[in-house]
Design a protein around this nucleic acid. Structure first.
Length: 985
RNA sequence: GGGCAUAUACGUCAAUUGGUAGACAGCCUCCCUUACAAGGAGGAAGUUGUAGGUUCGAGUCCUUCUGUGCCCACCA
């Protein structure tokens, strides 16, 4: 099988997703092991109006990595997808469509028709993001896709609302709320953002104090009281002026009356702690219906609440005939003009002001008094606080600062405004009779029954979108409040003692079937962004605890923000957005995924195309490594026994490295350190496997063995086949480790490996169509651990590196072979843990063919200081067979190292390259001095540390030992280097 | 105003409970060697923002200052 020389991501991406989905690989039902543990994640449901952005791509990658690994490990896994109905967002899209298409407003067509069109819009355009998720390779169970306005989920919403109402946790009340005059709805505090304007003004308005006999008599009572305001139009709704009770200036004014200009009203001057005497004029106009603080002052002093605006922020009749119908900003101008005419405008200062703006439409929010529904948060807050303080749930990753942010927010929690003046969403299940009595019920019929009349109208508002998403962790699993989960739990033998004749795979009948709830709730982990810890995470925690008495999830992974290349959050207005789909097209889905996974958990990151390019290259590297293996795969098969039975040092080394990599990847993923897993995999594939191992075994597995009839050749053929199987098996195992990160590439390549079949699957999936995504995920195994061989191989690799280094230093042509002398020192005598010289000799003997090839060596001589003998290895041409054979000469004396050699030191030996006529002695001396200098510095530092009694007694023994060994190494090397430096003089 | 985070090689980022500072890209030298030029061999490059402190030992813990960023509250 011949592969293209470059990896084409698109091809692989088109080949597999559909097959996986069709074969049911994403559903938990594919798992045939009835005793399998479950692992579940619910997706943060993206808005139906949404397009995939980098934040999604990042979060989805992490969730997919977690799910794919657990699935491979044999867990019954469920990653549940879904979308959110996104109230305001859809409402605006549909309104826009109406406006541009038919030049109509929602009011023109009425609520019913509007909602119908919203559903139509959702059917037509709401699938963009789910299609994009398929491209990402997200292994979600599409058969369990949920939408927050699905029938069952809507029923859940109504039931939750009714229950909370009956228990007194939901109430209706007049409050100052954040009103968006554009969307004509209330916003929760969390939906209001801020904008700082430098061109703000602070207006100083003179309010005439009503003159009475008394005030005229008193010299201390001024004629005017000046108030400062940034919103002068609200003066039309003033019902008092407040001063600080401690303010001596105004002491005598308290209790007097203001003749409010532009109105015929008289309002009192009151004293209230709220006023800061130091700020402005020390006198504050009080508008209880249009300012949250004024509202509070108003309630304390029992002031009237005068609403002067309509829901579109135009002035209403209460503002006076002159102002009625004017927009708030037009009214503002007019108020100022009037004050100026009356000579009551004292001054106007420039003032930097921060305005509350609607998060979605950027309209300036108007605080307004209105009737809304609220959820009382005190008990819920305590419940959530208990969980995190006593049980550490949820456990945040990273813990700092998220846990603190979460608890602090909870501690200061205010009641939650849940009504929204929209048509798209869950209409509040409350009905009113003619007298305004409220009947909260699950259905209209029930409300009729409660009211004893059919003359009811339903509340026109819908619920905050987060109300339904707050139920997401259990409503998606079939809970809708119609049957109690505990009853079902008793009926199911959910965990222990499942008898063998009762082994039914769980069904997913839907409806009020609660088996999914039993099985998959609580979910294992939630992956989401910082921005919705309050909006969503906390509310799921509270509502799940309240309604199904479970923890919604144990762990929460908070991802960082993917910033634009300029280091600022991506936004349309900044134009620094990076489109994931574009990156998929350019670099491949897999490269994008693994780059996103390489970001440290929770850290913000600037987008950087050069790094994603690195992973594109990485994919190509793996592609080509596989290509090489396949080119030499005749007779080979994936066979795990070739790993356990490996004999050569090089084989054991790579197997041990693979084993360690599996361990590290597993450990990293257990602790959500995705970037460490990526790092280890990258290094294993590129450096260990491609950089060294393929080069080490290349000749062995690719050489042509011509005549199999000869006995010798037959056995050579056999061992070559084993070697070929071995490298394929190592590759296959490594591909499995990489699969969660790069699903397409690994599947594409795995399918091409010889002899892959569903027999390689985890035992839970033996009957499934063959795919890498159901193979067992490799784990650390004692049988594959070869520590000593790893150390031995490092010696051989070190020699190759040092020789290459010397060759580069002296510009030796790649084609020119060199002779190399190794002079062993007595390091092992001082350091018992080190390899003995005899062992070293064996290593170099065994790996001579590879060393010779990779370092371009003709003759390698080893001078064994202990025994005074020398061994020379060399390939010589055998005249009879015309083949190169290894010639080993043993001499009973120490060979001399020619003076004109390039030399360098590895632990345990001096490496020398005789280079007659090429050696620049001055350069050599400088190199030696530099090496000696470096080592001496290190030595000095370490010796000082080791002579410190505190260190030796307090530091861990291994640490001290390691340092001592290093000192031995350094000293041995130093003495050798000094000797050689002397010899150069 | 309150709380929090962050500052590491020109750049983007790592460094798991304190234990000899790493990766990639870029740069310099060399090589189109039959898996891969999206490649290979080698090299240079950091007083870990600042000033102190704790410790045998600090990028990591504490404090100061400076820069940057985030969250919350308030802003008459």
């Amino acid at each position: 099988m011949e592969l293209a020389t470059q990896y084409n991501p698109k091809e692989a991406e088109e080949n597999h997703y559909q097959k996986w989905e069709e074969n049911g690989c994403f559903t938990p039902e594919i798992n045939e092991n009835p005793n399998a543990e479950t692992y579940s994640i619910v997706i943060p449901p993206p808005n139906v109006t949404g397009n995939l952005h980098m934040g999604h791509a990042l979060q989805h990658t992490i969730m997919d990595v977690l799910i794919r690994r657990k699935r491979m490990q044999g867990y019954r896994t469920l990653w549940l997808p879904g979308t959110d109905h996104a109230g305001i967002s859809v409402q605006r899209k549909v309104a826009e469509q109406l406006r541009t298409g038919e030049n109509k407003t929602p009011l023109d067509i009425g609520r019913e028709e509007f909602v119908r069109r919203a559903w139509k819009w959702k059917e037509e355009y709401g699938n963009t993001i789910t299609e994009q998720m398929r491209r990402e390779g997200a292994s979600v169970d599409w058969s369990r896709h949920r939408f927050t306005m699905d029938e069952s989920l809507s029923l859940a919403v109504r039931n939750v609302f009714c229950t909370l109402y009956e228990e007194g946790w939901i109430y209706r009340g007049l409050r100052i709320v954040n009103w968006c005059p554009n969307d004509k709805t209330v916003l929760s505090d969390l939906e209001v953002k801020e904008e700082t304007r430098k061109d703000g003004k602070l207006y100083y308005l003179k309010y005439p104090v009503k003159q009475t006999a008394e005030t005229r008599a008193s010299a201390s009572v001024p004629k005017f009281l000046t108030v400062a305001t940034t919103r002068p139009e609200t003066m039309l709704g003033d019902t008092a002026v407040a001063v600080s009770p401690k303010d001596e200036r105004y002491k005598d004014l308290v209790g007097q009356t203001i003749e409010l200009p532009l109105t015929n009203r008289e309002i009192p001057i009151i004293a209230d702690e709220y006023v800061d005497a130091e700020f402005g004029t020390g006198a504050v106009k009080i508008t209880p219906a249009h300012d949250p603080n004024d509202y509070l002052v108003g309630t304390r002093h029992d002031l009237p609440q005068l609403l002067i605006m309509n829901d579109d922020a135009t002035m209403n009749a209460e503002a006076g005939a002159e102002f009625e119908g004017l927009d708030r900003f037009v009214a503002r101008k007019k108020v100022i003009e009037k004050f100026e005419e009356l000579g009551l405008l004292e001054k106007v200062d420039d003032y930097e002001i921060t305005l509350p703006i609607c998060e979605r439409c950027k309209t300036i929010v108007e605080p307004i008094l209105s009737d809304q529904w609220f959820v009382k948060m005190d008990e819920m807050r305590d419940m959530a606080l208990d969980l995190i303080k006593n049980e550490g749930v949820p456990h945040f990753s990273p813990q700092i600062p998220n846990e603190k942010v979460y608890t602090t927010w909870l501690e200061n929690l205010k009641d939650w405004t849940i009504s929204r003046q929209l048509w798209w969403g869950h209409q509040i299940p409350a009905w009113y009779d003619k007298d305004g009595n409220v009947f909260v019920a699950k259905t209209e019929e029930e409300a009729f029954e409660k009211a004893g009349t059919n003359e009811l109208t339903q509340d026109q508002d819908v619920l905050d979108t987060w109300f339904s998403s707050g139920l997401w962790a259990f409503s998606t699993f079939g809970w809708n409040g119609e049957s109690e989960p505990s009853a079902v739990a008793d009926g199911l033998s959910s965990d222990s003692d499942i008898s063998d004749n009762n082994l039914q795979p769980p069904t997913n009948a839907g409806g009020s079937d609660l088996s999914d709830l039993e099985e998959f709730c609580p979910t294992d982990v939630l992956v989401t962004g910082r921005d919705i810890i309050f909006l969503w995470v906390s509310r799921m925690m509270m509502l799940t605890k309240k309604f199904v008495d479970k923890k919604a999830f144990e762990d929460v992974i908070i991802t960082g923000t993917v910033l634009g290349a300029d280091g600022k959050p991506m936004s349309k207005s900044r134009g620094n957005g990076v489109d994931p789909i574009e990156r998929f097209d350019k670099f491949g889905v897999d490269a994008t995924r693994i780059y996103l996974a390489s970001i440290a958990t929770g850290a913000d990151i600037r987008w950087n195309d050069t790094l994603i390019e690195t992973y594109r290259n990485f994919a190509n590297k793996i592609w080509n490594a596989t290509r090489f293996c396949l080119m030499n795969s005749e007779g080979a098969r994936v066979d795990l026994s070739t790993l356990e039975n490996a004999e050569s040092i090089a084989d054991k080394w790579i197997i041990s490295r693979l084993n360690k990599t599996a361990e590290e990847v597993n450990n990293a993923l257990e602790t959500y350190a995705f970037h460490i897993a990526v790092n280890k995999l990258y290094h294993f594939f590129w450096d260990d496997f491609c950089g060294w191992y393929i080069e080490l075994v290349k000749d062995e597995i690719s050489k042509e063995i011509e005549d199999e009839n000869l006995n010798a050749n037959e056995s050579a053929k056999k061992s070559q086949t084993v070697a070929r199987s071995r490298i394929i098996t190592i590759l296959e195992q490594a591909l499995r480790l990489l699969h969660p990160f790069m699903p397409y590439l690994t599947e594409e390549l795995w399918q091409k490996l010889p002899n892959t079949s569903s027999e390689l699957h985890n035992s839970a999936y033996l009957n499934a169509e063959k795919t890498i995504m159901l193979c067992d995920f490799p784990k650390w195994s004692e049988k594959l651990m070869f520590e000593t061989d790893e150390r031995k191989m490092h010696k051989a690799l070190a020699v190759i590196s040092r020789v290459r280094n010397l060759r580069a230093t002296y510009n030796i042509k790649h084609s020119k072979l060199v002779n190399v002398l190794l002079k062993f020192d007595k390091l092992h005598e001082i350091m018992p843990t080190t390899l003995s010289n005899d062992e070293l000799v064996d290593i170099f003997k065994e790996n001579f063919p590879q060393i010779a090839k990779l370092a371009k060596i003709n003759k390698l001589s080893m001078i064994n200081v202990d025994s005074g003998i020398s061994i020379t290895l060399q390939y010589v041409l055998d005249i009879k067979t015309l083949q190169y054979v290894l010639d080993i000469k043993t001499l009973q004396y120490s060979l001399d190292i020619p003076k004109s050699s390039a030399k360098t030191q590895i632990p345990g030996a001096l490496v020398a390259l005789p280079l007659e006529g090429l050696i620049d002695f001055e350069m050599e001396r400088e190199r030696f001095k530099a090496q000696i200098n470096n080592l001496s510095n290190e030595n000095e530092k370490l010796t000082k540390q080791l002579s410190n009694e505190n260190f030796v007694t307090k530091a861990p023994a291994e640490k001290v030992e390691a340092l001592q060994e290093r000192v031995c190494e350094i000293e041995t090397q130093l003495s050798a280097l000094n000797q050689n430096l002397e010899a150069l003089k």
